[in-house]
């Protein structure tokens, strides 16, 4: 059975159609990479899946864990196990990372019918998961993402993912703006979370990340559709040849 099944998805923002018939199935444990030129709709896909209301879904369906994903509000999707690592994590002054995580972990546990974690166990979990992405302890006490460097923000996303243990992680250009060391740390964090039940959709512009997070499938998104799919060799080919040949192929098929 598919963990998530996206079928002929259409979505628009402000009268502009951005996703134009996107179809993708992901089985438990699989890692799918989505590549594509700037503006092809990668972040839009991530936002629509996570439940951002600015986008209007005009057609198609998404089934997640056997449920209609598009019917659920964003918070419900998260509780059902969908996690989006944002391309641009927002800074939230005045809300401490710790209070934020406590609230989020609490809601997740409530959803699963679990008791709230004791303060001691929560702190232990924070320490353990922060170590996974080599995030300094003191960042946990700061306001959410406030004054974090670009790399710290991305690591904080993976840290949150580790805390919330989703069944599907969607990483939106988590590699952008990272130097090679930070990239390795982030990739190691993600790899540590890989399991036969947990799937990932890894959105990236560059092949580089896929050396570390090795995907089972690679798809190319262009003008709101998946125009080519393959294995990790496709990513290498894209690295070498760029996107122009894909564009030409796609335009020829219209």
């Amino acid at each position: 059975m598919n963990l998530i099944s996206i079928n002929n998805l259409h979505a628009r923002i402000e009268e502009k159609e951005i996703l134009r018939g996107l179809t993708l199935d992901v089985k438990p444990g699989e890692v799918h990479a989505i590549m594509g030129p700037n503006g092809s709709g990668k972040s839009t896909l991530a936002s629509v899946l996570a439940g951002r209301e600015d986008y209007e879904v005009t057609g198609g369906s998404v089934t997640f864990n056997g449920k209609d994903l598009l019917e659920m509000p964003a918070e419900e999707r998260a509780r059902e196990g969908l996690f989006l690592a944002f391309q641009y994590p927002v800074e939230i002054p005045g809300v401490s990372n710790m209070n934020f995580l406590k609230a989020a972990v609490g809601e997740m546990r409530k959803h699963k019918g679990l008791e709230p974690l004791a303060a001691k166990d929560f702190l232990k979990l924070v320490k353990e998961k922060a170590a996974l992405v080599e995030l300094q302890d003191h960042l946990a006490n700061r306001a959410v993402n406030e004054g974090f460097s670009g790399g710290e923000k991305k690591r904080n996303e993976i840290f949150q993912m580790a805390m919330l243990e989703p069944s599907l992680g969607i990483l939106d250009e988590t590699d952008s703006g990272l130097d090679i060391d930070a990239l390795r740390i982030v990739a190691n964090g993600v790899n540590a979370l890989r399991s036969p039940e947990r799937s990932f959709i890894v959105i990236t512009h560059y092949q580089r990340l896929l050396d570390y997070i090795v995907p089972d499938f690679v798809h190319v998104l262009y003008k709101g559709r998946i125009v080519k799919s393959g294995t990790k060799e496709l990513a290498l080919e894209l690295e070498e040849r760029g996107y122009d040949w894909i564009k030409e192929e796609a335009e020829a098929n219209v």
Partner: peptide
């Protein structure tokens, strides 16, 4: 910010309260 909090499973009310 509201969307970010909700995307982590926090309810609309609690997100506003935070």
């Amino acid at each position: 910010a509201l969307f970010y909090l909700k995307s982590r499973g926090i309810s609309e009310d609690n997100a506003r309260r935070l």
